[in-house]
């Protein structure tokens, strides 16, 4: 970040109790109090949420897109991890 640029924050909103906070965008703000205020003004004008999290964008550690295959493809071949892999006769009923 260049000098004098106002830091970036990622905004997460819980739409209603019972649901997880979900990423919805970002705001610029000098500190966490102003970040919450800006997030409230920008992202909840129509009853979109009951709770807001803001996180400094610089604090987020992300997986490397170049390692996408290495990280996530092994799961694709392991179909035996899914319930539909196993054949249970209809007579047994719902399982």
């Amino acid at each position: 970040m260049a000098k004098n640029e106002i830091p970036l924050w990622e905004v997460f909103i819980r739409p209603r109790n019972g649901l997880a906070h979900k990423h919805c965008g970002s705001v610029h703000a000098a500190d966490e109090v102003m970040a919450l205020q800006a997030a409230r003004d920008v992202y909840t004008r129509r009853g979109e949420g009951v709770s807001i999290w803001v996180v400094p964008s610089a604090s987020i550690v992300a997986s490397d897109p170049d390692q996408k295959a290495e990280n996530f493809e092994p799961a694709a071949s392991k179909i035996y991890r899914h319930p539909t892999f196993y054949e249970i006769p209809d007579e047994v009923g719902h399982m």
Binding site: N4, I6, A29, A30, D31, V33, M34
Partner: peptide
């Protein structure tokens, strides 16, 4: 813009 940055620093 200058003031909010200074305020943020002060709070920190």
């Amino acid at each position: 813009r200058e003031a909010v940055l200074a305020h943020g620093e002060k709070r920190k």
